[in-house]
Design a protein around this nucleic acid. Sequence first.
DNA 1: GTCTATATTCAGATAGAC
DNA 2: GTCTATCTGAATATAGAC
Lengths: 200, 200
Amino acid sequence: MSINTKEKILNSAIKIFIENGYSGARMRDIADEAGINKGLLHYYFKSKNALFTEVIKSSAQDFFPKLGRILHSDKTFFEKIELIVDEYIEVLLKNPHFPPFIVNELNNNTDIFINTLFSAVSIPDKAFVFSLIQEEVSKGNIKSVNPVHLILDTLSLIIYPFLARPALKKISEMNDEQFYDLMRLRKRTIVDTLINNIKI
Amino acid sequence: MSINTKEKILNSAIKIFIENGYSGARMRDIADEAGINKGLLHYYFKSKNALFTEVIKSSAQDFFPKLGRILHSDKTFFEKIELIVDEYIEVLLKNPHFPPFIVNELNNNTDIFINTLFSAVSIPDKAFVFSLIQEEVSKGNIKSVNPVHLILDTLSLIIYPFLARPALKKISEMNDEQFYDLMRLRKRTIVDTLINNIKI
DNA sequence: GTCTATATTCAGATAGAC
DNA sequence: GTCTATCTGAATATAGAC
């Protein structure tokens, strides 16, 4: 069945690319993972590059739309922070290989990668996020902060542990389950750190 | 001159490996960068892998020893935090490609990479860092915190912007110089965030 | 649509002249 | 020590049978 096979290839490609990066992933492995042969792979996707583009588009769908919905919701500012931390970490726990994949491609293939990403999903608008923060400042709800730093703080605290995960596991002699537990506990810690830093 | 050539190769290799990662780096490019040919490259370094090992050893020397010296110094706890943030960011500003390089190799080649790293440089001892933090807690100088989270907070805030650098530059329409200025200002922000979070 | 077999390309490694 | 030329192997991509 045509559609089924294409789906199967795409899912296998997501897995292999995300685990190994572009240059580390082999068409051979993707074909094996999908239970088909290399020829058929090229029948559905003209080239490795074309397949990769589809993978970026498809996998990024899980991440950014959710973020946008929270930012545009009618929750309070502090509730939004809490929701972002909670949901982002949950998504990453389900896709722990995603952050290193993004970092790697972003740094090795910047322009192509960013353009593909931007054309595939809607990234929350910078100006909108800035205005959200500045509004809270002028209302006197939070300290006067540079929005760039607040955004960087938030992303850093959430994402970094997933990038350092192999080192963290090795040094702390953790298994996957223990890493999982640590990150779920860390949600509270991150929210506290962020709020401690901006509350009046 | 033998020694000079070997040095030249090593410096070129550091540059090429760090910019492109292991699988992205080509022996051809390293030879070109060093102004020699591939044959000579293999004369000095038996294989790509052997050369890579030397690169890891050599480049990691800049990072970890400095950290250890600060931790073992006789400064106060808060001064140590300030020094670590300051010096770490300075080193990274001089080597902005280093964090994505480490993250990539760490995630694609975990065991070999970590073993090579540990054999090359002395990473600050986990137990020692923990005891530093716990001592401050029992002295009543800082809140009772889980050392793992404090260490993760610190590393996250310092390192993450260098991993997201290409995206940050693109979204904020920054050039290298502006990124540099942002990170120098950010030192103060990071220290404040960390201390805000642990002070009594 | 799916397969096998083959062509092509490219990077790592070696051999051998100077 | 340094070079050029060549070998080998691996991975992407294509051709063509079924």
